[in-house]
Design a protein around this nucleic acid. Structure first.
Length: 259
DNA sequence: ATCCCGTACT
DNA sequence: AGTACGGGAT
């Protein structure tokens, strides 16, 4: 492969897409993090791991994930559990709504789908606590559906590939959709997330070790540290407080008031 | 798009 | 106390 610079992803050829997929998947195959849910394809287990990983770091989740599967080894076990037992098992993870949603979802799948987790993004999205990201992750990892899974890490990776300060949701989705490897969608999505967690970090990304650097516009421009843009501090004030003091001609205050 | 939520960090 | 974060919900 000979390359002259980062690709225009809107017009990328099939060969170019194949090249970037091959590069990242090869990297993933030899340097992926070994995690308890890696290589797993049981949709219930992927579901549990993805919900636990929302707003919670990997190291924290690992022991909870293991204990959870001992206590609730399959969807049926979770669906018939007492909510108090569910919450007890979740204790320490925080965001307890996730646990309530997970069990409500398990009951829903049991009652509406005969215990089989649905395999489409739209059906998955109907489960409580499952949004676009989580639905894509479950569909791709557990069911090999060629759909993207764009979490915070992936957003950063894509923003750097595009060298955009604040790529729109639609720009991110369309690029993510084009990139997904049709043969190994689950591995592809996990590879992108892994890359964001380990190489394409928010600060000081390790571009020298990045298998995607040949395709990365930010890397070519040297702007990787500033992509995506930091959030504007504070934002636009919604109101401005004005205080006036009325004085007479000798500058004695006639009216004073504490705001 | 924008808001909301619960938590961690400062 | 205030803010940043990363998801979901609307």
């Amino acid at each position: 492969m000979t390359r002259t610079g980062p690709t225009d992803w809107l017009t990328a050829t099939g060969d170019e897409l194949a090249s970037i997929r091959t590069a990242l998947l090869a990297h993933y195959d030899h340097s992926r993090r070994e995690l308890p849910w890696r290589g797993e394809t049981d949709p219930y287990r992927i579901w549990v791991s993805e919900i636990m990983l929302q707003q919670t770091r990997v190291e924290t989740v690992i022991p909870y994930y293991r204990r959870w599967l001992e206590r609730f080894p399959d969807l049926e076990a979770l669906a018939q559990a007492e909510i108090d037992d569910v919450l007890l098992e979740w204790e320490g993870l925080g965001y307890y709504r996730r646990a309530r949603n997970l069990q409500a979802g398990a009951m829903l799948v049991r009652d509406r789908y005969g215990g089989q987790v649905p395999d489409t993004v739209s059906e998955l999205r109907a489960l409580p606590g499952v949004g676009e990201y989580t639905a894509g992750a479950i569909a791709s990892i557990a069911f090999n559906e060629p759909v993207p899974a764009v979490d915070g890490n992936v957003k950063r990776v894509l923003a750097r590939i595009l060298d955009e300060l604040a790529p729109s949701g639609s720009a991110l989705r369309s690029l993510a959709k084009r990139l997904v490897d049709p043969k190994r969608p689950g591995d592809w999505n996990q590879a992108l997330m892994d890359l964001g967690a380990t190489v394409c970090s928010p600060r000081r990304p390790l571009c020298e070790r990045c298998p995607l650097s040949p395709w990365c516009r930010a890397r070519a421009a040297g702007t990787q540290e500033e992509r995506p843009a930091a959030k504007p501090r504070g934002g636009v004030p919604k109101s401005v407080r004005i205080t006036a003091v009325v004085v007479d001609q000798r500058e004695h205050a006639l009216v004073e008031r504490q705001p």
